[in-house]
Every structure is written in structure tokens, then in C-alpha cells.
Amino acid sequence: MDGDRSTLAGLIEACREAIAANAEHLCALDRAIGDGDHGTNMKRGCEAVYAERGELDAMPLPRALERIGMTLVMTVGGAAGPLYGTLLIEMGRRMEGGRAKDRLAHALPEAVEAVARRGRSQAGEKTLLDVLYAVQSEVLKQETPARIAAAAGMAARDTIAMKAMRGRASFLGDRSIGHMDPGACSCALLTDTICRYIGESQLA
């Protein structure tokens, strides 16, 4: 994708559509174990990024990622804003210089660690980190976009059996078991959207 700037606006649009189409589902998941706002929060963030897609398209990718992260921080609210924001801001900051593929493999683990620090969380605590670690491991193995997306979906489903240890869902204790974490769900959804987009642009 690097160098082909026209694809970033398209990718932003695809993410916005995916979140809009699933906003109610994300809210329903959040209602079950949280405060029910994850879908509307993510939708607000995606709309704000979408509104800036023209400017973002004209920026080098690392700077665009940083800017997207900042926009998400300022608009999503809830804990998801700082978590997704930190992921993208750190990715952008660590992707300056070098080749696109090396940069991604180098930036992703560090950005995921920054998300873990921000949320004071780790793997297995029923959060979007569970999906991020799965994505990271497939990216480091240089798996295909389709495989990365599949691993993300599986990791999100694995949160169903987990007991929430972070955020409001942790107040429910054992009652959080049996529900998919909404953050893990949105993360898998966005991963799937991005991987499809990259997969299709590689075929084209």
C-alpha cells in the first residue's frame, strides 16, 4: 500500500462502513457486559476520521496514522479512544523511515505494547489486546491478509470464554463469561476490513 496514497481514503471509508454496519451489534455486546456505548463511540470516531480523509490522503503514511490516532483519542471517548489512539499514534511514530513491510513488523509489536501499558492490561484479560496479540503474531510470521483476519476473528471469539479483568466488565466477575468483548469484536472487525482491503488491492 505504501506509496499508493489513493488507497488510504478508500480504506478509511471501508472501516467507517464496517463500523456503521456493526454499530448496533457492538453496542449490544457492550450492553451485555458494559455501558452499551462501544458502537456509537466507534462510529463517532470513524466519522471524524472519515471527515479528514482528504487531508490524511495527502500525508505520508506514518504521519497519517499518527493523526488518525489523535482524532480517535479526541472523539471516541470511553477507554477505546485512548487504546485505539495509542495503537495508531505509536505505529505512526515508529514507522518513520525504512521499508513499509519492515516498518510494520517493527512498529506493530511496540505499538501493541504501548496499548498494553495504556490499559495496564495483558493477554487473556478479555480486551482488544487479545486480538492485537493474535494479529501481531500472524504479521510477524508474514502470513497472508486472509490468515491474519481469520486469526483476529478467532481471537475475538476466544474472549467469549474469558473472564473480564479490566474495565467495567470486570465488575461482573464470572458473569462476564459467555459474552464476546466488544473491543475485541471491533478490533477483529477492523482487522478483517483492513485485510480484505489490502488483499483486494494486491490482486488488482
Binding site: D35, D37, T40, N41, R44, V73, M74, T75, G77, G78, G81, P82
Partner: peptide
């Protein structure tokens, strides 16, 4: 939040 609903806003 930014829409005036419950939430927080950086």
C-alpha cells in the same frame, strides 16, 4: 462525551 451523552472527552 462529544455528543453530550454519558462518557468522557480528552
Amino acid at each position: 462525551n462529544a455528543d453530550g451523552g454519558l462518557g468522557t472527552n480528552v
